[in-house]
Amino acid sequence: MRRLMPVLATAWLAGTTAAAAGPLETLERERAQILAALLDPALDPDTRPARTDPALRRLVDLERMVLRDPRAAAGSDGVAQRAFADYDLTFLAHASVERG
């Protein structure tokens, strides 16, 4: 989880809050939730994993859904363009592990 922190923080700052459609929208929402849990000062180190671990599983699944689902890239609207133009931000979980 510690490895994810720098990338998550960058994603948060990059403000990937644009309204997206379909699977991308769900992915954006899940990522916002996990970032909120990671950055929530009210959570202590013992209780935080209880919130983030299931969310991380969902995030990984959602990233895979977006990558596999042709609907995610259907049309050439700006949301899909931006999402696929920046793999590291959109597919946060996969990119963070890939980069070690």
């Binding site: 991380l56 990984v60 990233e63 895979r64 990558l67 596999r68 995610a72 890239a73 050439s76 899909a80 363009q81 696929f84 133009a85 793999y87 959109t90 597919f91 979980a93 996969h94 990119a95 592990v97 890939e98």
Partner: peptide, 26 residues
């Protein structure tokens, strides 16, 4: 559309290479 398709293809390639590693690591 061509740019999006190319980016998607590139993303899928990166994903294929990292999927198993993600499961093990996380």
């Amino acid at each position: 559309a061509a740019r999006l398709a190319a980016n998607r293809l590139q993303a899928q390639r990166r994903f294929e290479g990292a999927a198993a590693k993600v499961d093990t690591a996380l």
